[in-house]
Nucleic acid binder design. Structure first.
Lengths: 191, 191, 191, 191
DNA sequence: AATGAATGAGGTTTCATTCAT
DNA sequence: GATGAATGAAACCTCATTCAT
């Protein structure tokens, strides 16, 4: 098992899945781009599905790990959320291709992948909810988590569409949005 | 061309695409569910792609038509946006299957469909932006349209995941969210 | 059985077979050009093969009938052969489409049609041979029939290729060729 | 790409196309006779059309190459033409199957192949014309090339029909014919 | 006699996976 | 570990023919 060959395959698969989608990406495309033979693929991965899942799971794990930190952060909620959002956007931006697959493709592939997606995305939503619950009542936290997650995904989405969008722009847009969302909440709290 | 047969095929395709995704839905599945022969499919549609596009385009057209009304509505912005969001959710809820395909699958299929998706979703975002621009400055409208569209999609998304979610629940969640979003804006306006 | 509908179908089939070949001509093409419904075709012809054979057999019969006359003509051989060749070219020219099918397509379609072609073309060659045998010894007649038949077919062929070739040109080319062929024979006879 | 497998496929295709025609030969027939799997065919050829064209083009190229030699031969015309005709017949006889496809099937398949055929056959006719032009005036060369090409094709044709015809018989028939054709011309020249 | 919607067998082609070298 | 030719199941699609109206 030469780890380098495996990396080449993962990199190649990542790029192709993002660009062409799971079904339109052929194993033959992956090996061609990785400059290895067709048979080599099956030394490292049991199937096309396996390499796909490996990519997905890695991203999800890393993302969750980075976000879990904010469960134990002791700052005011606006700072916490802003940092969390920044972390989220940085992570997905740095792994654009897999994030694209994860957030925009996984759900539509087939029932098996749909279930996986639901499970994974729920984890993220749940985590966001837990963080918010430290500052707001349960119901408000629930709805805020929906607003914020939807908002961040939409920003990431615009980034995918608009290829010359950069990370800083995304983050500053996100902060503006967060401000708007919390101004309402703030007033309420103060009152 | 018996319109009834065509409808059976469209209905069958819609359900299957939503359930199994585009690629995992075989033409043989569609005709089996519609109770017609394999060849019959090709009397009504040139290809699997064509029936898929017909479904997508129909939903998009109807959705856009219903939302365009709000460009000329003369009420306060909160009422306008709430009505628009309700309309949106109603339409997608009543056409759950196609809406699921449209919002959650289209992007990931292949490059051609990706382009289509970008074009179509941009229309919706643009319309939302135009409505908001009647009440807010351009930049604020832009960011509000991102927040709101992301939020509605996330709600619809939760609805897809959680099968016993109903329309009323979705609408009331949405209204709560809209209130939160606009409380911030309101205060600013007032001040 | 409205003879007119049958004629429309035969005409339409003739043109299409000539232009696109047997396999590339669909029954749906034939009925469309004849302005009748798909089902109507099968009132007049048992199958696509049947209409094809009807066309072929008609041409062949008429051609043979017209050529048979020259078995009993009492002129010098050069006049006889020239008249026969003229008759041949006139007939195929006036029925260009079917003649094209007959002389250039039939052989390549399948084994059944190949056998038919061999049988039909042998009839023609045989007739030419019989006419020549009235003037020349058997072996010479055999070879002359091969030369002449090959020559006429080649002329007709050039006519098919070069769309603005007309009958008069073909006939005069043919006469020139016949002169050349027989000049050699002539000398021999004279000597 | 094992050249051996490709050869097996070409050989198998050649025989089947000649026997059953292009349309009646299924890819499944070709692979069965070549003893390889269905999918193997598509490693070596993009489509059924491609293998067909490869066969056609190879024959045509080889034939033309062998005949081009006679453009620079310095003997009397009768010897030159006889040698050329012998070469032609030898080549087509040794590649009976493809020659059959080329001379008797190509024209009738579809419009694309028809155009190809016209182009290829014109090359041959042109070459024959060029050789003759070295000895005869232009117009006479033109008509002689038509007579001779028609004659040779007819001979080859009889060979296809009459399976126990052999090369020597064909060649000697051809020489007899050529003699007859040129006796006329000869006399003229002499006179 | 005419229609035209429906049929379904059978064709071409794709591509994930295997396996002998 | 690496190769790449070979596999074959299964997909999409075509079109001659049928049949109820």
């Amino acid at each position: 098992m030469k780890i380098e060959t495996k990396k080449k395959l993962l990199q190649s698969a990542k790029e192709l899945f993002a660009k062409k989608g799971y079904y339109e990406t052929k194993v033959s495309d992956i090996v061609e781009r990785a400059n290895v033979a067709q048979g080599t693929f099956y030394i490292y991965f049991k199937s096309k599905e396996e390499i796909f899942l490996e990519l997905i799971k890695t991203l999800h794990q890393e993302l969750l790990q980075k976000l879990e930190v904010y469960l134990n952060v002791e700052t005011d909620y606006q700072t916490t959320i802003k940092s969390l959002v920044k972390e989220f956007l940085t992570e997905v931006y740095n792994n654009k291709e897999i994030a694209e697959i994860f957030f925009s493709q996984l759900f539509g592939l087939n029932q098996e992948f749909k279930q996986l997606y639901i499970k994974k995305i729920s984890d993220i939503q749940q985590l966001l909810f837990e963080v918010l619950k430290k500052y707001f009542p349960e119901e408000k936290s629930r709805i805020l988590s929906t607003i914020i997650l939807g908002f961040i995904r939409q920003i990431f989405f615009n980034c995918l569409i608009n290829k010359n969008f950069n990370l800083d722009q995304m983050v500053s847009k996100a902060e503006e949005g967060i401000d708007i969302i919390f101004q309402g909440v703030n007033r309420e709290v103060i009152t």
